[in-house]
């Protein structure tokens, strides 16, 4: 599974920024992740797809410890995730996350949503945090919404605020957990555009998404998961043009068929 990454490493490139080695996770009796091995290089764009319940959300949620893995190792930017709260916070400072349901703070304005992380977790002054918040609000193309509350924005705008909120922490890695699945169709492209721009800026990204057009445009590596396993991992051309496994072929037919 780690062919690509090991190829890259043997070719003398940099070491992976995210590394999962033999990771297993159970929810009670149900095994959600089975012996996951994955390596993501700095600046790499990884798109994860697969049927629902295949463990793709669980996998990326393990990368910033929103889920705890039971065995195996997860190393993010040189820090191994274990039960040490200090390590967890170190990793979270470097890893931003965008959720399907946005999860903006409804009692804070857009600007306050963006400022709270830098102020509390990065110990910036209010003025510094505001400056940074305005910068990233500009980056997601909604500077005019700064003083509104999340409930006053459309779904697409809310998701872009959520992206900006993560970017305000200036993370080295961004995780996207089905960022467009809760959006009305006409709002999907505005979010994908922002994500594409982010990809072009060189950010390391791991995206769980069913937006295959976006995947073809942006991904360096495609990963297909099913029943808690990584079934296939390849560059987009091979992945879409010539999938090795039946399971992956069937999934792609279903998702691209309509």
């Amino acid at each position: 599974m780690t062919d690509l990454a090991s190829d890259a490493r043997s070719a003398g490139r940099t070491a992976p920024i995210i590394e999962l080695i033999g990771v297993n996770k159970w929810f009670d009796d149900f095994q959600a992740l089975k012996d996951i091995n994955l390596a993501v290089l700095p600046g790499e764009k990884l798109v994860v797809c697969g049927p629902s319940g295949s463990g793709k959300s669980t996998m990326i949620r393990c990368i910033n410890r929103l889920e705890r893995h039971q065995s195996g190792r997860i190393i993010v930017d040189g820090t191994e995730l274990d039960d040490d709260e200090k390590n967890i916070r170190t990793v979270r400072q470097e890893v931003g996350m965008v959720f399907q349901q946005f999860n903006l703070f409804p009692h804070l304005t857009v600007l306050e949503n963006l400022m709270i992380g830098p102020q509390r977790a990065r110990k910036m002054t209010k003025a510094q945090a505001r400056e940074r918040a305005e910068l990233y609000l500009e980056r997601v193309h909604i500077p005019e919404q700064a003083d509104k509350y999340p409930s006053q924005l459309s779904g697409g705008q809310q998701q872009r605020v959520a992206i900006a909120r993560s970017l305000c922490m200036e993370p080295r890695i961004m995780l996207f957990d089905e960022p467009t699945s809760a959006l009305d169709p006409e709002m999907i492209s505005e979010v994908l555009d922002v994500m594409t721009e982010l990809a072009e800026s060189g950010m390391t990204m791991v995206c769980v998404t069913h937006e295959m057009g976006f995947a073809k445009r942006v991904a360096d590596t495609m990963v297909f998961m099913d029943a808690g396993e990584i079934v296939e991992s390849a560059d987009p051309e091979t992945f879409f043009g010539n999938p090795r496994t039946d399971r992956c072929q069937r999934f792609l037919q279903q998702i691209l068929g309509h």
Binding site: L66, F99, N103, L104, M169
Partner: peptide
């Protein structure tokens, strides 16, 4: 909602800050 805790933790807020501000 659980998502509020997760969002707060994903931007590295401490337990106290998460409670106090979110």
């Amino acid at each position: 909602h659980r998502g509020q805790y997760e969002a707060a933790r994903s931007i590295s807020l401490s337990y106290t800050d998460t409670m106090r501000f979110i």
